[in-house]
Design a protein around this nucleic acid. Structure first.
Lengths: 229, 229
DNA sequence: CAGCCAGGATTGTAGGATAATCTTGTTGGA
DNA sequence: TCCAACAAGATTATCCTACAATCCTGGCTG
């Protein structure tokens, strides 16, 4: 056979998965930017897989909302319109505040508590100002940890695959220090409520946090969104 | 070329979509039951499409949650465990009550109102007892119409692809007349609140309806679920 | 300069070939 | 009889080639 990039020969039955992961990473890392077109033919040469496999990977990523497949025109990295972002935050507001409530209910379990505290120690606001990139990473870690300990694995999957990463990257490009600061303060309140085992409080604070975030994102200049000029 | 089942030659670029729809219908119609294995080779012969296309369709359906793809073992129609059903209803409770609230907010728009009323006239409880199959169909129509007029297309897509149809079919198999009756009464209250333009009421009634439905489903005998005996 | 058309680029689909893996049935020994 | 090892068949996963359909671009014509 032949070795692909990482030096490990993806075993039989893992090639598509491998390719999906590779493309996903490339998108999150910004090597593939929203709106960019993906040429199937190029990838076959570049990664060393066949076109059929590439097509399957595209379908997977389309379902995850990371790509958009346009008939006879192939795949492009998804870009959200202002309206879609508004809708997205409205959904997040509900799903993640539910997750926060469940997390507060389950924080009594030692494993959950330990896990949450360890994550919180990593991402808690420190005195120093953070680079945008690192903030985004911490933000993702924090939100994900809450969803994890909610104990609802379907909810977890749902939020995970909710194209959140795409839009977050999209807006991360134009994030300002004061937004990070404000977001941090919201996080403190959410974390506190969860650690206190206060479901209603956790739900409320998470909802407020996302409402504020959403409003801020929608105030961004137009260039950040698809469609409007 | 060659004609496929419906007698219309699916145009270039539509074959996968067509196949997805066909399999989806087969699942909802019960011709493919949860747990059943799908053999790629059979489908190529049966529908007259190539294996690559079948595989793409499988991936799509997996992402929609209707199929489960197990490496080297192919695709099986998804079957949910009791725990997964519980999680699912918890999520629905939040998403659909949001949809109901938004629907009540937007019922002032004539097009929405006309559409909702026409759906309601179709599915409204009548004196006669309904067949299970027809009830399930009406139930789906009703819930879908609310999501539609919520105006949040992402929410609409999300709920649509939330494997709801699978579980509903799964539980539909063992539905009793008294459950349909009770569900109908819930629907009346939800519809009334929406038509009154009462967002808070619509949200509350929808949440109650789904809470009741979820509790009822979870009281079903074990055979209805995957895993537990 | 607008409309049209040819050719290249790219996608969509079909179908064959091969290796990996799973399934099942058989056989030989304890 | 029971069980483990092996063999044969079935099925999947992947790669490959081929060709039709469609999109795109750039030049030609009027």
């Amino acid at each position: 056979m032949e070795l692909n990039g990482e030096g490990l020969d993806a075993r039989h039955g893992q090639t598509v998965e491998h390719t999906v992961q590779r493309l996903r990473d490339a998108i999150f890392a910004g090597r593939l930017v929203p709106g960019q077109r993906l040429i199937a033919g190029d990838l076959t040469a570049e990664i060393g897989i066949s076109r059929g496999t590439v097509r399957e990977a595209f379908r997977r990523l389309e379902a995850d909302g990371l790509l958009e497949i346009i008939p006879n025109r192939g795949a492009v990295v998804r870009r959200l319109s202002r309206e879609q972002v508004r809708e997205l935050f409205q959904i997040r507001e509900n799903l993640e505040s539910l997750a926060a409530r469940l997390a507060a209910e389950h924080i009594g379990i030692d494993a959950n508590r330990d896990y949450f505290i360890s994550v919180w120690n990593t991402v808690r606001p420190s005195g120093e100002m953070l680079k945008t990139h690192l903030f985004m990473e911490h933000n993702r870690l924090f939100h994900r940890s809450i969803v994890k300990i909610s104990g609802n694995t379907m909810l977890s999957d749902l939020i995970e695959t909710l194209h959140l990463p795409v839009v977050m990257f999209q807006v991360g490009q134009v994030m300002q220090p004061e937004n990070m600061e404000s977001s941090h303060q919201d996080h403190v309140r959410v974390a506190q409520a969860i650690l206190d085992g206060d479901p209603a409080g956790a739900e409320r604070e998470m909802r407020l946090h996302l409402k504020r975030s959403g409003e801020w994102v929608l105030r961004l200049p137009s260039f950040a969104f698809k469609g409007d000029r």
